[in-house]
């Protein structure tokens, strides 16, 4: 079973930015890309369990706030030391000004 969960309002997140979203005991990161698309990944860096939402978004990359681990938030792919484990990504859609995440 997979549920669409409302994470936030679309304009809660600036373009090229990220926001933390906690749900059901789990934590996620919701992204708005520079070209105004929305994405979602697991919320914690795969290196040391740091909240990625405190990090910096540049283009399609999120940088961990602690050790500069980099991920492509659109695909979840790790982009070099110190991270080597990819992030899980989740489908996102915007409906009536709300950002919805499909949590599996």
């Amino acid at each position: 079973m997979s549920d669409w969960v409302e994470a936030c309002a679309a304009d809660d997140i600036d373009e090229e930015d990220v926001m933390r979203f906690d749900h059901g005991g789990r934590t996620f990161a919701i992204y708005r890309s520079p070209d105004d698309e929305y994405f979602a990944t697991d919320g914690l860096c795969s290196h040391e369990k740091v909240h990625l939402a405190d990090g910096l978004v540049m283009d399609d990359i999120i940088e961990c706030p602690k050790h500069n681990g980099r991920f492509n938030y659109k695909t979840g792919a790790a982009r070099g030391a110190p991270v080597c484990v990819n992030l899980k990504t989740y489908p996102v859609k915007v409906d009536a000004g709300k950002v919805l995440v499909q949590i599996r």
Partner: peptide, 11 residues
């Protein structure tokens, strides 16, 4: 607190 300064320090 936490990683409050991380993003701006990176910039």
């Amino acid at each position: 607190p936490g990683n409050a300064v991380a993003r701006d320090i990176r910039l």
